[in-house]
Design a protein around this nucleic acid. Structure first.
Length: 585
RNA sequence: GGUGGCGUAGUUCAGUUGGUUAGAAUAUCGGCCUGUCACGCCGAGGGUCGCGAGUUCGAGUCUCGUCGUCACCGCCA
């Protein structure tokens, strides 16, 4: 036995007893005749005291101790003569009688403290050291607790946790697959799952009725702060349910997590159609912690010889409360911000609704005070507010206004990390048109059921068909999404047809699913939450990297183990692979 | 694929208009110190200014390229 107690549990009540602790040297404070050592493990810190007069042997060992040495110390617990209110163990210390170095440490490249001196790069390279730090470890403890709470909630609701295979089959739709060559099947490849989609549907056909899994998924696409090539989903599917049943079940799960983990009671989640989200928020994942809705001013501002507006398909605005005192410099900065290629606006028009009731606009030579008053009324603006207008092609301006809205929300401090506003976005379009390939793609996935009342549109106006598909959005983050599935092989076959699959292709890719549907498939629906995003939201973090023990960087590299990496020629030979690198231009 | 930020001591950063020997903090090492807890005080060592070209009498500083890293756009059913 290496220890009798952890470094976080000794208190005054333990005084007088002999204990053994083991852990890492956090810090050494030498005061000449005596030395203090802070001993750390994941449970806390306990102060060890060494008296110079005790023994020469102990002094020698003590002298050699450095930061992050792993040691074992034995001695009696005693009350401190000067206590430390900042530590739970601050009333006591160990009078060390015996010390053993279990493992020495090189000088770590950054300080292992709550506020480390290390930057992201170096901490990622030495992730195992970064994980010793309290804030990083706490994120992973939170993750563990949330996983536990999810399992417990779903188990109580009769969900069956079922594993599905990781080596599966590549499909053309959706994200790029990570592929794995098969040695035993020459020239053939497995794919890693983008999600266990078809397997969970087959489990419904199998009569499992309620399935869930906290499962790794893989997508070979470019990364972001909230996107990793491998990420974790809370993946679920239910049979004999309608959309409403799924929403209620997972709204319940989400509320349970907020209560159990953060002791927060959240109100019932509002529902918003995809169409409304796009028009009012310029986004399919609206942040409803604040309003500042987008207003369509097209009809209000046209027809006044201001050609920029007159020639535009759409003119939209947001109203920033209390910002009429923005300076020229601030407005110029915002204008430049919306003109960046990422936002893509050509320019920005402002209208200051001054406190004295007058108006000041960048285009007021085209518009009378009365006209400007109409703008203000249409935006619901009051004295002291600032209206920002963008004009251009409708879809891209809604997008830009949505981004501008978030930027203003950020600048005005309207996005409090401790406020949680979940909502369901529903009625997504079933299909989206792709200009490049001149065909429709499934917006969610090809197994999503159209709304029954829209099925007639499948032939006439497929772009207008709405799906029984839904997303859970919290604070502008897409936490999860799902849909009611097609369970009729005829309709499924028609969908593949719409998506441009030939009968043969559909049969080759998804024949197993359509066969399964011929043997009594129950109506079913499902949902998947992005677990990493959910944890980072609960932790108040912007990057999911912070809630993953060993994450990858922007380029999909693990800088700690230095992967990916080339493989040996004999491995390539065995797999019948030949590497041909493209010439760099 | 694209846009932008960053790259200087182990680490985090400063570095003026292009001009003498590139600084600070912290970490490390040595010395002093018996109640510290971010201990304190004194001292020391530590630099291919990411890399490569170019401009210049002279480049950490300017230009181009390249590599690394971060954020975003495209992409992510």
């Amino acid at each position: 036995m290496y220890r009798t107690h952890t470094c976080g549990e000794l208190r005054l009540e333990h005084q007088g007893i002999e204990v053994t602790l083991a852990g890492w040297v956090q810090r050494k404070r030498e005061l000449g005749g005596m030395t203090f050592v802070d001993l750390r493990d994941r449970y806390g810190i306990t102060q060890l005291v060494f008296d110079e007069k005790a023994s020469a042997e102990l002094n020698d060992k003590l002298k050699k101790l450095g930061r992050e040495f792993v040691i074992q110390a034995t001695g009696h617990v005693r009350e401190r003569s000067s206590k430390n209110d900042h530590l739970p163990t601050g009333d006591i210390e160990m009078d060390v009688a015996d010390l053993k170095v279990l493992s020495p440490s090189a000088v770590p490249p950054f300080t292992i403290e709550d506020e480390s001196d290390g930057g992201d790069d170096i901490r990622m390279k030495y992730r195992y050291l970064d994980l010793r730090r309290n804030p990083v470890r706490e994120n992973l403890v939170l993750r563990s607790k949330m996983a536990h709470a999810i399992r417990s909630y779903l188990n109580d609701q009769e969900f069956i946790e079922t594993e599905t295979p990781v080596l599966i089959k590549s499909t053309p739709e959706g994200a790029r697959d990570f592929v794995v060559p098969s040695r035993m099947n020459e020239g053939q490849f497995y794919a890693l799952p983008q999600s266990p989609q078809v397997f969970k549907q087959l489990l419904m056909v199998a009569g499992f009725d309620r399935y869930y899994q906290i499962v790794k998924c893989f997508r070979d696409e470019d990364l972001r702060a909230d996107r990793q090539p491998e990420f974790t989903q809370i993946d679920c599917e239910m049979a004999f349910v309608e959309q409403e049943d799924v929403l209620n079940t997972f709204e319940g799960l989400t509320k349970h997590l907020f209560k159990a983990i953060k002791n927060v009671d959240v109100a019932d989640f509002p529902r918003m159609s995809y169409a409304d989200a796009m028009i009012n928020y310029g986004s399919d994942k609206p942040d409803i912690r604040f309003d500042m809705l987008i207003k369509d001013l097209t009809d209000v501002v046209k027809g006044h010889q201001f050609s920029v507006f007159d020639d535009a398909e759409f003119i939209g605005a947001i109203c920033a409360e209390g910002c009429a005192d923005y300076t020229r410099k601030q407005l110029d900065a915002l204008t430049n911000w919306v003109k960046r290629p990422q936002i893509g606006a050509k320019g920005m028009v402002y209208l200051k609704c001054n406190a004295d009731g007058t108006f000041k606009s960048s285009v007021d030579k085209f518009y009378s005070e009365d006209e400007l008053q109409k703008w203000a009324s249409a935006c619901g603006a009051k004295a002291g507010d600032l209206i920002l207008l963008l004009s251009g092609e409708k879809a891209s301006m809604l997008d830009a206004l949505g981004a501008l809205r978030l930027e203003m929300g950020k600048q005005l401090g309207l996005m409090d990390k401790n406020t949680f506003k979940p909502l369901w976005v529903v009625d997504f379009p079933l299909l989206e048109w792709d200009e490049e390939t001149q065909r429709h793609y499934a917006m969610h996935h090809p197994f999503t059921a159209p709304k029954p009342e829209d099925i007639a549109l499948l032939d006439t106006a497929p772009g207008k068909v709405r799906a029984n598909a839904y997303d859970l959005v919290i604070n502008g983050v897409e936490i999860g999404g799902g849909s009611v599935r097609i369970y009729d092989s005829e309709l499924q076959s028609r969908m593949f047809d719409l998506l441009g699959f030939t009968k043969e292709e559909a049969q080759a890719q998804f024949g197993f699913l359509m066969s399964a549907f011929k043997y009594g498939a129950p109506p079913h629906a499902g949902i998947a939450f992005g677990f990493d995003r959910l944890v980072s939201l609960f932790a108040g973090l912007d990057s999911i990297r912070d809630v993953i023990a060993f994450p990858k960087n922007n380029a999909g590299r693990d800088v700690m183990i230095d992967s990916p990496s080339p493989i040996a020629q004999n491995q390539l030979d065995e797999l019948n692979l030949k590497v041909v690198l493209k010439e760099k231009k």
